[in-house]
Computed example of a mutant assay.
Amino acid sequence: MPKGSEELTNARKEEIINACASLYETMGFKDITIRDIGAKTSFTRTSIYNYFQTKEEIFLALLEREHRLWIADLKEIARTNSSLSVDGFADKLARTLEKRGCMLKLMCMNLYDMEGNSRIENLVSFKKEYANALRAISCCLEKFFPSMGVNDIQEFLYALFPFLFGIYPYTSHTEKQMEAMRLAHVDYVHCTIYELTKLFVVKILRPFEG
């Protein structure tokens, strides 16, 4: 790690992550290189290696940041609402996820690459945020649906998080994919992240409506 203040180090890391996020909006994971990321920063490409050893570590840091932002929204739901109905909570949870398209895309398409090619300390840092997300959801359920027991909450988590790993392909399609479905006569109705998430959460939580 280069010499300098922690503030400078964090600022450099954030600039690298921002560059990666910008490229990921229009390029595929496999197409993006360290050189591409370096070209969008204010310092030399080789300096990136002072902070991240692989591009996968940069993407993992982006995914960690996405989880941190999501957790902040979840905590805000718990902080600003004294009570919520099933429909109300499902709406607010779905709204938090429609803002996190990048998170859902990374979870669905690139998780194994990121985790497999990152140092253990980077992976542990991400897993801590993942655990924080689990706790944030649990806290919401405990507050808004007190009839849910420990096992009920655990079952909800077991249902929700695998759902999150698969929702992106159902809501985001390339023109090539759409053409293939048309030619294959697939009866497809487009749904958004918000729509699918709200429907899913309502169906799971309806038995616990107060």
Rank of each mutant, 00 (worst) to 15 (best):
D31A: 14
L84F: 05
D91M: 08
K92S: 07
I34A: 05
K143S: 03
Q53E: 14
T171H: 07
E64F: 00
A61N: 07
F144Y: 09
G149L: 02
Q53L: 12
V186I: 15
R135I: 13
S85A: 10
N110R: 08
L63K: 10
I34E: 05
S138F: 07
L111Q: 09
I32E: 01
L104F: 07
D187M: 04
Y158E: 11
N151A: 11
K127F: 07
T80R: 11
L63E: 12
T44A: 15
I16N: 06
Y130V: 02
G149C: 04
Y188M: 09
T96R: 08
E142Q: 14
L196A: 01
L74V: 03
L74E: 04
T26C: 06
F165M: 11
A72D: 12
D73H: 10
R68L: 12
V86S: 01
L93G: 00
Q177T: 14
C140W: 02
K105P: 01
K143I: 09
D31Y: 02
E115S: 08
S138K: 12
I137K: 01
E14Y: 04
F59A: 13
E14A: 10
T33E: 06
T174W: 05
G116Y: 06
C102Q: 13
E6T: 11
F163L: 05
L141W: 02
H67V: 08
F126P: 04
M178V: 13
L97S: 06
T54Y: 05
T9A: 11
S118P: 09
Y188G: 04
L104Y: 07
V202S: 03
E64T: 15
L196N: 09
E64C: 09
F145R: 00
E7I: 12
G149T: 02
P162T: 08
A11F: 07
C139L: 14
S147I: 10
A180N: 09
M27F: 10
R45W: 01
S138E: 15
L104M: 07
F165Y: 12
H185E: 14
T46A: 12
T44I: 01
T33C: 06
L199P: 00
H185N: 15
A78Y: 01
Y158G: 11
E64P: 00
L134H: 13
M181W: 14
E76I: 07
R12H: 10
D113F: 12
S125K: 14
E155N: 15
A159C: 11
L199W: 06
L196P: 00
G4K: 02
M109I: 09
F145W: 04
R95E: 15
S83D: 09
H185V: 07
L205I: 06
R182N: 13
Y168Q: 08
E76R: 15
T96Y: 05
I37D: 01
I32W: 03
S42L: 05
R119W: 01
H173L: 15
K105I: 03
V189S: 11
C102I: 14
Y24T: 03
M178T: 13
